[in-house]
């Protein structure tokens, strides 16, 4: 905006500062999907800096898949202007191999077993089961993280 002098009408000139694209996308997963690749597939390849994106993961994934997914999200997220990754709708499947990955025996296995019971318990509320599931996934992630 320019002012020529006292009383003169201001001159206004438009300048483009930025344009952002809002994207809401869904990431449907199955127990055997390669999660990292699936995530990359739903993300746009170009202009990531000007994109605000929200990815909502749905379906089912094992602990290993979830750990992979989380890693991929942490790797890819910073490319975007805004990256919101929502796994609330993503269910978790557990098998003994996953638990074996945490530990075959001992106290860590004991903790993992208890959390798994918590996710399957019929006496607990849905929120409490979700908390147990989250805790188990987290434990798995920590153990994996330490193994690398």
């Amino acid at each position: 905006m320019t002012l020529e002098g006292p009383g003169a009408p201001p001159t206004v000139e438009e300048v483009e500062t930025g344009a952002f694209l809002w994207i809401n996308t869904e990431l449907p997963l199955l127990p055997n999907t390669d999660c990292a690749r699936a995530l990359e597939a739903v993300l746009p390849d170009e202009g990531r800096r000007d994109i605000l994106i929200r990815v909502r993961a749905t379906g089912w994934a094992s602990l290993q898949q979830q750990a992979d997914l989380r890693q991929a999200a942490a790797r890819l997220g910073p490319d975007f202007a805004h990256f919101d990754f929502d796994t609330n709708m993503l269910g978790t499947t557990y098998d003994d191999a996953d638990l074996d990955d945490i530990d075959k025996a001992g106290a860590l296995r004991l903790a993992a077993n208890r959390l798994k019971e918590g996710t399957e318990s019929e006496t607990l509320s849905a929120e409490e089961r979700a908390v147990s599931a989250g805790a188990l996934a987290r434990l798995y992630a920590y153990v994996k993280e330490a193994a690398e």
Partner: peptide, 24 residues
């Protein structure tokens, strides 16, 4: 809500780990 969920998850994990260790 997400943060509270996160805190609940961490608290639960902490409790279960501590219990498991002392049980072992």
């Amino acid at each position: 809500a997400r943060i509270e969920q996160e805190v609940a998850v961490l608290l639960r994990l902490e409790t279960v780990l501590e219990e498991a260790r002392s049980d072992a």
